[in-house]
Write a protein that binds this DNA or RNA. Sequence first.
RNA 1: GCCCCCAUCGUCCAGCGGCCUAGGACGCCUGCCUUUCACGCAGGUAACACGGGUUCGAAUCCCGUUGGGGGUGCCA
Length: 588
Amino acid sequence: MAISNVPPGSCSTVVVVACVVFVVVVAGGTSSLRGHSAKPTVSATRTAATEKSTGFARLGGRGWSFGGSSPPRSISVTLADLPGRCGASAIVGPEPAVPASAVGGCGEGSLGRVTDSVRVRFAPSPTGFLHLGSARAALFNWLFARRHGGQFLLRIEDTDRDRSRPELIDVIFEGLEWLGLDWDEPPVHQSQRDDAHQAAVDVLLAGGHAYWSDAVPEGERDRVGGRAYDPADRDRGLPPARGRAVRFKVPHDGGVTSWNDLIRGEITVEHEHIEDFVIRRADGSPTFFLANASDDAHMGITHVIRGEDLINITPKYLLLRAAMGLEDATLQLAHMPLIVNEQRKKLSKRRDDVSLMDYRDRGYLASAMVNYLCLLGWGPPDGEEVRIDPLNLNDGFPTMFDITDVSSSPAAFDTKKLAHINGEHLRALSVEAFAELAMPFMVTAPFADRFGSDPADRTTFERILPEVQTRVTTLDEVPGYVDFFFVDSPEIDETSWNKAMVPDAAGWLDAVIAEVPGWDWDATVLHESFMGLAEELGANRRKFQAPVRVALTGRSVGPPLFESMELLGRDEVLRRLTVARSQLAGGG
RNA sequence: GCCCCCAUCGUCCAGCGGCCUAGGACGCCUGCCUUUCACGCAGGUAACACGGGUUCGAAUCCCGUUGGGGGUGCCA
């Protein structure tokens, strides 16, 4: 990780502290990765004080600590408070979740030796729903943290007033909890770090890395007048005043900012192509760039794993860090490819189904969702794609996830494959669990008012369920397979009826109706009796069962016929057959 | 426009200079099983964008072209 052309003297003038604090030793440097020189490697960090004999001591040294489950502290930080990576209070935590053997040997593993200082974060903005892309970003960060025995943190980017509403924030927690992604420290609320952000701006201003600007944004110029931003503004030396924003002074000295992206290799951007950007709005609020860089530093983030759409802000992020004296050789960045739709466009709220929880509501299991999301841009090295417990720390994806193996090209969201995986997960469920999970879909089904009114319904439901389990791909399909048990008369599907009611159907129905009263009422026996009858009449087995099926269920497809008959009961079967027969007679 | 990123079956993932006649998965097609539909099982279909290099040898490395995407806010 190299940032060229850092303004000379920045370290001494701006943040003396940071220079002192970063005692971290970079071990291993940038060794090549499985001989693949194009891809970068994760630098390992360790200090003598924290490395236990196991080699997997957890480096948890924050300059501060949490008291139980107390809410995040709203700390007023000056840059001097920015991360104390190796302060005196280094904490040796519990053993990492991932066994040493799974991490890979030194030099052999794709990541080489990685100690447990990894701290990653998921930093969503509360928009009222959890976007699929965000969910995957959270997932990959979580996997990375768990794989390396590090911490997965949360930061709510709620600097917009209306975005800090608790209900919007809860949606994020709900989504993560549903997926099974746990976080290790109380979430940081960006809105509560305003003092720190202001302090950061002040320091940048004082160090000559930022300046006041009276330019008016385009949208407002029509209304309030004023002039557009001019690159020459950086030299006007404007004093602070109401209504003025602060811009960061990008070093236009012919230099570049570059970093070795964990997923895509080296990325370089010339400073000439980066315009001086606003870090503090005219209303005093910090912009995303400033808050983001400041908060990551505050939280001691070691690896920034985020979407590809943020590649372009990275130079600004790095420049800001450098100017704040946070130039840190251990920071690693990884930009994941976007999830795109069939048209290869970034998943959009308007066109696509991007809300994670909508998938839950349509009958997808969290485990299937996680399983599938892991397969977008990554895949287990052993090729075993379907994992019923994908997040299992002992044998799931966390034992094998490698951020440098993440693909660099966008992945299309394929609902067909998601459905297939969901089906696999559904079939792996015990009948009891399946019943439990299907219930919410039963009580909202069209026949819900009748279903459950009779205690026998539940029994019927559970008995036919094993047959339903192999037939559905999502839980919301369940009611459609069992509805005929719980309505007075099944709605007859016309196509099915026409197809089943061949010329011989009337005679067949008559024969069945005649035999039903005498048959033993057990699915297996019914099967034999029924097929015996078909043979007697010289009828084709397939064709013979079709009219009965349509008469009883309304459709030509559904659960096995004889189990259904048994559960429906002799009287009801007789009644439905008779009704169908009469409709046939009437020319139906 | 400018900047950045990407490029193997329709889709996702393998491929890390010879093991590639390019592998697996989803989808699709065929067959088997079978009371329908599923499940399961057995087959099949289908890809290295193009052009130059480098090399004894390139899907793999380099350059270019083309195509696609993302970013270009006092949004995050």
